[in-house]
């Protein structure tokens, strides 16, 4: 129905409209933090992919390579006690909350050092102590759950905000609409972030969606302003994130953000992404958020040696996490029967 190139054009046009007046850049320390987060995510996920090829990461995994700026921006903008809800493509959002790499790598590898000792896997990364309230692998439901955390924050008067990330494909499931409506009616402190990477699994989102911008064009149905942002521009993302979080914290209700981005790889590990044209892929690889941001920092006068040191530090962190996870034993088989219930067990009868 629509060529994928046409989607790219349509989307970049809309983004440029939204970016007519660029906001002031974040302060230098925040910019370095944004860059560091993106480098960490990129390094972590590339390693996860290598480990998959070596048979050490089992099951499935969904990489966010190319989409790092969105998770990084929120990671830097959120308060330590805010709540994150992510999807199965949630490695980056987990790292963004300060969860160390070793337990995340360990979880992907099914080791006892894993974040959930191997009971959840790549698609369910959760670290409550870091405000990472879960990665949800059936799209839609977690928007409604984020509402619950936001409702709770509002009821308890804590001024915490719930941030919920999801892909473009999620905008066509019923729970998306139920969640947006209730969040708006109850004026909940929640920020919904649609990472529009143009592809709903193996299908172009434009070919299965009635509007051009799957999230932003739906916003008005819930009395919300349409927010379109270049999801590959860490500064622009940080600005939008800061604004939406402040609005939620002030009691002014939810926001729905549509961030234009692109998935460098396929949908999941089993998908080489061959359905995408070379032209489209080339266009978006040219808009890779990492080299672009590196160039911007250098242009702003950051010493290259600072960036190189940061990159080396992250590379060492990835190596260390890999080695620690490899050295970690498989989980105890007792875990099969643990924690169905709050008493730690799984008994259902006497």
């Amino acid at each position: 129905m629509f060529g994928s190139r046409a989607q790219s054009k349509g989307q970049s046009e809309a983004v440029s409209e939204a970016s007519e007046e660029p906001p002031p850049p974040p302060d230098p320390a925040t910019r370095l933090a944004l860059y560091r987060q993106m480098v960490a995510m990129r390094g972590f996920e590339k390693r996860a992919y290598d480990l998959f090829l070596q048979g050490l990461v089992k099951g499935t995994s969904h990489l966010g390579l190319g989409q790092e700026a969105i998770a990084a921006a929120f990671g830097c903008a959120m308060r330590h006690d805010d709540y994150t809800f992510a999807t199965y493509r949630g490695h980056n959002h987990t790292l963004a909350r300060g969860v160390p790499m070793t337990p995340v790598m360990g979880e992907l590898m099914g080791r006892s050092c894993g974040l959930m000792a191997g009971k959840g896997g790549s698609m369910h990364l959760t670290s409550v102590e870091h405000g990472m309230m879960g990665s949800y692998a059936i799209i839609g439901a977690h928007l409604t759950i984020a509402n619950g955390a936001a409702f709770s924050a509002k009821s308890r008067g804590t001024s915490q905000v719930a941030v919920c990330f999801f892909g473009d494909g999620t905008t066509n499931i019923g729970a998306f609409h139920e969640a947006l409506n209730l969040a708006a009616v109850w004026k909940l402190p929640v920020v919904f972030v649609c990472e529009n990477n143009l592809w709903m699994e193996y299908t172009p989102i434009a070919s299965v969606t009635a509007v051009a911008h799957p999230a932003a064009d739906r916003a008005s149905a819930y009395g919300l302003a349409p927010i379109l942002v270049d999801g590959n521009d860490a500064d622009a993302m940080y600005d939008v994130a800061t604004t939406a979080l402040a609005r939620a914290r002030a009691g002014d209700g939810p926001s729905l953000i549509e961030a234009a981005t692109y998935r460098h790889g396929g949908h999941s590990r089993a998908d080489p992404g061959k359905y995408r044209s070379d032209e489209e892929l080339e266009y978006w690889l040219g808009r890779d958020p990492l080299p672009a941001y590196r160039g911007r920092l250098l242009g702003a006068g950051v010493d290259e040696a600072v960036l190189a040191a940061l990159e080396a530090e992250v590379a060492a962190e990835v190596d260390e996490a890999t080695e620690q996870a490899k050295a970690s034993p498989p989980p105890s088989l007792d875990l099969v029967m643990s924690d169905v219930w709050a008493d730690g067990g799984s008994s259902w009868r006497n």
């Binding site: 709540y83 309230m133 439901a141 409604t144 619950g148 955390a149 409702f151 308890r156 719930a162 139920e178």
Partner: peptide, 10 residues
């Protein structure tokens, strides 16, 4: 969803 999100946050 509200019930679950509220229950997991106290």
């Amino acid at each position: 969803g509200v019930a679950m999100g509220a229950a997991m946050t106290g």
